[in-house]
Design a protein around this nucleic acid. Structure first.
Length: 113
DNA sequence: GACTTGACACAGG
DNA sequence: TCCTGTGCCAAGT
């Protein structure tokens, strides 16, 4: 009997969490991974976003690394698309880095709960 | 079937 | 304080 690895939900879970990120807020891959239970699997979150792009529509631009750097901007349609999108939502971005990242940080483990 | 890569995070030097 | 190395898990080749 073919087992159903719950990890399969991992991708779906990532989409659910990212979709719930409020506009003007940002979160980190590690925060999502930790919320999902796979603390050390921050890379999987990024991998999930790639798999979701562009088929699944999710505010992936609101997901950045722990320092608030738009490392994934290169994977968007345009390298500036991510930054433009964030600024459009009211998030200040400078040098591919989110300004006041700590202030705009949205922790799913606390906010979403 | 096994190795390498990858949108990260943390520890050590 | 900054840089380098290692660890995590899954998908791609």
């Amino acid at each position: 009997m073919t087992e159903k690895p719950e990890k399969r939900n991992f991708f779906q879970d990532v989409y659910e969490v990212v979709e719930q990120i409020p506009a003007g807020r940002v979160t980190s891959y590690g925060a999502i991974a930790s919320y999902l239970g796979s603390k050390g699997s921050a890379r999987m979150v990024g991998w999930a976003l790639i798999a979701s792009h562009p088929a699944i529509k999710i505010p992936a631009h609101r997901v950045v690394n722990r320092i608030g750097m738009l490392t994934g901007s290169q994977h968007f349609d345009s390298p500036n698309a991510m930054q433009e999108r964030l600024e459009q939502e009211g998030v200040k971005v400078e040098n591919n880095q989110v300004v006041d990242f700590q202030k705009l940080f949205w922790d799913p483990a606390k906010e979403l709960l």
